[in-house]
Design a protein around this nucleic acid. Structure first.
Lengths: 196, 196
DNA sequence: GATGAAATTAGTTCAAG
DNA sequence: CTTGAACTAATTTCATC
């Protein structure tokens, strides 16, 4: 398995700035041919580095409620359910989970107000406290920087280097640091799914 | 000028979920022809509702530093300079400005740590206090919802309705609630640029 | 505003190095 | 890991409604 090189990073940067520029233009910028660019972009998607192609929408031009930053202090066991519940909502664009069990979300609050929004969207018992800040502006700029690929072995948790391998099972990608981990993972998997 | 209709919203939703689907597919979904879809997307870009086509990158797979949520309390007069300084940084992906003069940013902190990052990126005098939370997860989902176009008249500040008009000057878009405001804006503009 | 047909432009496949 | 050439697919233009 290869890690990311400068060409991948440059492609990511160019796509982040404008995902519609023709591959011929990207190809010229990275001094490769269009088929190479095409293949590398496929690989970036396959690796999950590129999650999706999308549009950045200026919601300040859209009348979709009042933008707030909602900071919810949750019971540690409920962090994931609260994150999922918020991420699910039509009114929520960003969700951040902090190490100290807070879930921070950018929410476009409907007319009913924050309390109603919370009551309807978040498991009542999970919330300890919450805090609301009115937002006056928000920016999003996708960045790539000097990023190196940082994958974790699905079997042993080590960092996956260039020697690693990867495997796709049931639409999920798994990465491994070495053939042994891949093998072990595969047998465990087969045992489990065989028994099911 | 038209406002957004259901077809525009559906197009936005489809693009947000996958900006690469062919126009023929979008066309079928909204029961129009590909040229119509093309034209409407152009218009959404022209209006500034679609800021750009981009890729959603999974930065957790990229080794670009420790993700934190940085919450900076700033002197009110410095809010804009701090926002701009942060948005400028290669390490910052999101910046939110709250109504009570806090600037909240998602930062991928380099090895030097937060203090160094702040010292190098934010005007020293502007910061009153700051607070850091380690992030364990972050989601982004572009949403459209039931959005209506909410433009503000560049001359009088009223809401721009379907009767409004718009004008492009020096690469900037301006919207107006009525022809009088457009006229007045134009004369003011010509007077100012004539004198320069 | 919308369209079908034509023209243009972009993307992918493939055999080969 | 890359490419040029051939092929396939997508987008835009335009005359017309």
């Amino acid at each position: 398995m290869r890690t990311l090189d400068d060409i991948d990073r440059e492609i990511l940067r160019l796509l982040a700035a404008d995902a519609r520029r023709p591959y011929s233009e990207i190809a010229e910028a990275v001094d490769r041919s269009p088929p190479t660019v095409s293949e590398r972009i496929d690989r970036l998607q396959e690796l999950g580095v590129v999650r999706r192609f999308t549009v950045d929408i200026d919601r300040s031009l859209l009348d979709t409620g009042t933008p707030i930053l909602l900071d919810v202090e949750v019971k540690p066991a409920e962090v994931e359910s609260v994150r999922a519940a918020l991420a699910e909502s039509d009114r929520v664009e960003h969700v951040f989970v902090t190490a100290d069990a807070r879930v921070v979300a950018q929410v476009y609050v409907p007319d009913g107000g924050v309390r109603t929004f919370l009551a309807e969207n978040v498991p009542f018992d999970a919330v300890r406290e919450y805090d609301v800040s009115l937002l006056s502006e928000s920016d999003w700029t996708p960045r790539v920087g000097e990023a190196e690929l940082a994958l974790t072995c699905a079997e042993c948790g080590n960092t996956v280097t260039a020697e690693g391998e990867s495997l796709r099972v049931d639409g999920e990608r798994y990465h491994f640091c070495c053939p042994s981990c891949l093998d072990r993972f595969e047998s465990t998997y087969e045992r489990l799914s065989g028994g099911a």
